[in-house]
Amino acid sequence: MTTATRTARPPSTLLTLWRSTVGKKAVMAVSGLVMLLYLVAHMLGNLKVFFGPDEINGYAHWLRTLGEPFLRYEWFLWIARAGLLAAVAAHGVSAYQLSRRDLAARPSKYVHQRRRASYATRTMRWGGVILALFIVWHILDLTTLTVNPAAEHGHPYQNIVASFGRWYSCVIYIVAMLALGLHIRHGFWSAAQTLGANNARRDRALKLIANGLALMLTVGFLSVPVAVMTGVVK
């Protein structure tokens, strides 16, 4: 006679994934890649500042009308913002939890200290904190215009020129973009490794792509404050 075998219901797949170090790291990798894609689009959009006020102001307006008449005015923008907020939150929470765990796993340091890993790798945690603080400043400066001297809604060109007319705004921006470059240099390759996309043959190519993306985004973003400082954009 056979007896029915009953197995305890296992916890849900997503919960198990989130609780494991490998799964949490995958959440970090995916949310990081989402933000990276957004940054490429954001950087390309910024470059329109070089083609005059009408170009970038028109582009900003178009972003608000995108999806009409299916979406109402600004709906696309709010959907994108919700997605980005979720990505930032997932990235930050998993980074915080994993960092806590990592620090606890190595409670005592070696007496003989030597430099470990590359600069980009060692600065991931502090770099991430700098970027999070920068995002807050950046939104107050150029989205809500709370701390912007021009503060003209619908006129991003004028707001950008006004913002970078202050030296400290340029310093904040430049420091943050250098941190961003370092973060992506390690982060992109690390995400490929975490999601299992890396292997011995692809390793070099992935590192090259990571460096290329980091350089492209840093140079692209930095070109705007540099242009304002040098009077190319005024």
Binding site: V22, L103, T121, W189, T194, G196, A197, N199
Partner: peptide, 27 residues
């Protein structure tokens, strides 16, 4: 702890287990 892909492990490994092995396990 978790992996932050610093690569210190593969550098120290006396048997030369390569770093992409971690990617293979993640996969």
């Amino acid at each position: 702890g978790g992996c932050t892909n610093t690569g210190e492990c593969a550098t120290a490994c006396p048997k030369g287990i390569p770093l992409p092995s971690i990617a293979a396990m993640n996969r």
